[in-house]
């Protein structure tokens, strides 16, 4: 079977699986809600039918599970698309926002907004606070992406070793910054900071869903349109230029968009690592590296995977909850190690 057919098949399969996962994710929890009830509640709220499902279920779906699930779908998709785009830009399948330090750079930005912003405008409306966190997280993301790119890139793509080492340094630096913030933060801020560093979808509100929807969905859609350009970039920068692509402009655009995706994701859900590494890799294994398939497929599989991880995080130590960043790290880090193992000759 030709790869383009496989790609179409994969996209169709994921498009079916994603809504199924959404329903399952809404249903799972301390109070299980049957799929039929969920559909009735959703259709009722959309004004399609009139339902008589119990108020308690409706309330749980509406104010807790639905925003959390939507947040997971959008953040998971955005992280996976950002990872796939970064790997294309760096011409390097090991580039992941969390590994190369972009996520911790963004988290440091978010941390600064939480601690210092919290002190500055303690009485400002929460919407302004949320946006200031997003903006600073984005700033941290852009800065680190640019730094890693500058450090690691040479004429033959980026050097894996330099990139990973830059990531180590940036993670350490951001860690020190976070430590300082911890030191001066009060109790509430401290809890917030911890949450950001470990990652969780538990803080989901409709407000955050709206922030995500306004930034992340457009960014994903724009990045997906760069599929063919990223394919050309994989050949090398001068080759891409010979194919009529304005490489310099494209690079800046891609750095901006991926950092925006990572920054906003981190600002709403903290550091959720390895999604951007694992998802694109799985898809490349199935249908090859063509970004025209890889990017949309990553968007969907990223959402699916993060919902799965969130269900594990919610249920494994119930009634308590594990930070989702721990779950993705437990799944992703061994995966990363196995990739390193396979490529160890090339890296050395």
């Amino acid at each position: 079977m030709r790869r383009s057919h496989q790609g179409a098949l994969l996209l169709t399969g994921l498009a079916i699986l994603l809504p199924v996962m959404v329903i399952v994710s809404i249903g799972v929890g301390a109070v299980p809600i049957p799929a039929g009830d969920i559909l009735t509640i959703l259709f009722d709220r959309l004004g399609l039918i009139h339902s008589d499902v119990s108020n308690q279920s409706a309330l749980i779906v509406e104010s807790i599970r639905l925003p959390r699930t939507l947040l997971g779908v959008i953040v998971g998709g955005a992280l996976a698309v950002a990872g796939a785009s970064m790997q294309g830009l760096f011409r390097n399948p090991l580039a992941d926002p969390s590994i190369i330090g972009v996520s911790s750079g963004a988290a440091l930005g978010a941390g600064i907004a939480i601690v210092l912003g919290g002190m500055l405008f303690a009485n400002a409306p929460s919407l302004i606070q949320s946006y200031s966190i997003s903006v600073l997280a984005f700033g941290g993301g852009v800065l680190t992406t640019w730094l890693v790119y500058k450090m690691g890139s040479g004429s033959n793509g980026t050097s894996v070793a330099t990139m990973l080492l830059a990531g180590v340094a940036i993670n350490a630096l951001a860690g020190a910054g976070m430590g300082m913030l911890n030191y001066i933060a009060d109790d509430t801020m401290l809890r917030n900071l911890t949450f950001w560093q470990m990652g969780s979808l538990g803080g989901a509100t409709w407000e955050l869903v709206m922030i995500c929807a306004t930034f992340l969905i457009p960014v994903m859609l724009i990045l997906i349109r760069y599929g063919q350009v990223l394919n050309a970039l994989l050949l090398g920068e001068s080759e891409a230029r010979h194919l009529g692509i304005n490489v310099q402009k494209i690079k800046l655009t891609l750095i901006f968009l991926t950092a925006l995706a990572v920054g906003v994701s981190v600002s709403v859900s903290g550091i959720i690592g390895f999604v951007g590494l694992v998802v694109p890799h799985l898809i490349r294994l199935a249908v090859g590296p063509d970004h025209r398939i890889l990017l949309p497929a990553s968007a969907m599989l990223g959402g699916i995977l993060l919902l799965g991880a969130d269900m594990v995080a919610r249920t494994i130590v119930a009634p308590a909850e594990l930070p989702i960043g721990i779950v993705t790290a437990l799944m992703g880090a061994p995966f990363f190690l196995s990739l390193l193992w396979q490529q160890r000759k090339r890296i050395a």
Partner: peptide
């Protein structure tokens, strides 16, 4: 050329048509 992603040969040639 520094291409290190597993495109098929046909896909590589198709990139020329961009």
């Amino acid at each position: 050329s520094s291409l290190s992603f597993p495109f098929t040969v046909e896909e590589v040639v198709l990139l020329g048509r961009i």
